[in-house]
Design a protein around this nucleic acid. Structure first.
Lengths: 221, 221
DNA sequence: GGGCGTCTGTTCAATTGTGAACACGAGTCT
DNA sequence: AGACTCGTGTTCACAATTGAACAGACGCCC
């Protein structure tokens, strides 16, 4: 809304600012399904996503998985290392072919001082991320699995953009959805069936079409 | 861990840095139970907590409440206004007599550029906050209400400090605990009784004594 | 084509959690 | 004292959710 041009993910070019600060950085490309880092790895760098998409997930001792976030271009990732975390607490997996900037921890700290545009972008990201996670947490605290799934579908379908019903990229398994909303796969299967029956969504091989009317599920108490 | 002196909440004096940047700020004190701001208010300022404690909570359309965070000295609050949020999304209530710095949004943005020490502190806070919320979210996604309550009790008892069993400040109602872990009050009552029976905690008028062994509830799958 | 792995639809008993109700005791106010 | 509120202990019928199992469908590889 009120943000300056340089803090906007669309127009912001991290590489330029890193260069002007003489900061070492490395451009790396990952094919689909490749792992950027794993839970438990040493956290020595911060990653800036240029193109593609990344899934952040955590597995419990019992082997159960939880999807913490889905990140895209302009997002940072692994920034916990800048605070006390010496180790990655989640696993980052490329959802699609993905290009990232790998920035060493110390470099990142230094550049945050040297380049306002980059620190602006970083702070903007942190604020957004905070808001997103907080909303997820609130939904977990307040809602049933049915509403949580409805919300997740709406968010994944990029709601708030156009008027028309939008599409979710084809490849999202019921298992991943279950891990995002904290439910079992069988429950997701049943709920998707229910939503389909009610005309809220349309499941087809190419992907899931989400109808705006699905909002009623989230809103109605 | 690796943070510099000025980013450390204990030794950091926000007032000094605001003054040196010639930034307007206001010191305000709130008695216990007073509301700093309410969900829906215009978000025109950022608040820095100097002394005391603040509870951040959200109520759903249906009137159900969720406690999003408990904040203390060195924490910021209402920072969502710096990103797109034009309105407060949560209600902030003083847990104890609390002293805060109220900083207008534009001032805050300006000072973040002018004073590295403050922007360092702010970024450090955001990173920590992110980690905390993310952990909460993960626990919501992965665990049962029994484990969630056990974890909340351990965190409230400041675990990781001493060896001895620690104490929770007396005033925490079962209703608040329920809102923190996303369960009903009756369930919290039952679980507290269970924990007591098993010797994990000791409930008395003065407060709840939490035994380290409560950890076994969180850890065991 | 045949085999293999992954994703899905479906079922079902068992567990977990809810929501509402009622009783009790400890303040507080007048 | 009486009336009132608030936090608590407890119970119970019922709704939500799990976890495990099995079968079918769709690639993909050799």
């Amino acid at each position: 809304m009120g943000s300056k041009k340089t803090t906007d993910a669309k127009t912001f070019d991290a590489q330029t600012f890193l260069d002007s600060a003489g900061a070492a950085r490395e451009v790396v490309e990952y094919p689909r399904s490749e792992i950027l880092f794993s839970q438990g790895d040493a956290a020595t760098s911060v990653i800036y996503i240029q193109k593609g998409g990344v899934r952040l997930s955590v597995v419990s001792h019992a082997g159960r998985e939880a999807v913490v976030a889905m990140l895209g271009p302009g997002d940072f990732c692994g920034e916990g290392g800048l605070a006390g975390q010496s180790v990655r607490t989640a696993t980052a997996t490329a959802l699609t072919p993905t290009t990232v900037l790998v920035i060493a921890k110390e470099e990142m700290i230094r550049v945050l001082h040297a380049e306002h545009a980059l620190s602006d972008r970083f702070i903007a990201y942190m604020l957004d991320r905070n808001i997103r996670i907080e909303e997820d947490l609130i939904h977990q605290l307040l809602n049933s699995s049915e509403k949580r799934l409805a919300r997740a579908l709406l968010l994944l379908a990029h709601y708030g953009k156009q008027d028309k019903p939008d599409r979710i990229l084809s490849k999202i398994s019921q298992a991943t959805l279950a891990d995002m909303v904290g439910a079992t796969r069988s429950r997701v299967s049943v709920l998707l069936k229910k939503f389909t029956r009610l005309g809220f969504i349309d499941v087809r091989p190419a992907g899931i079409t989400v109808n705006r009317s699905l909002l009623s599920v989230v809103l109605h108490e």
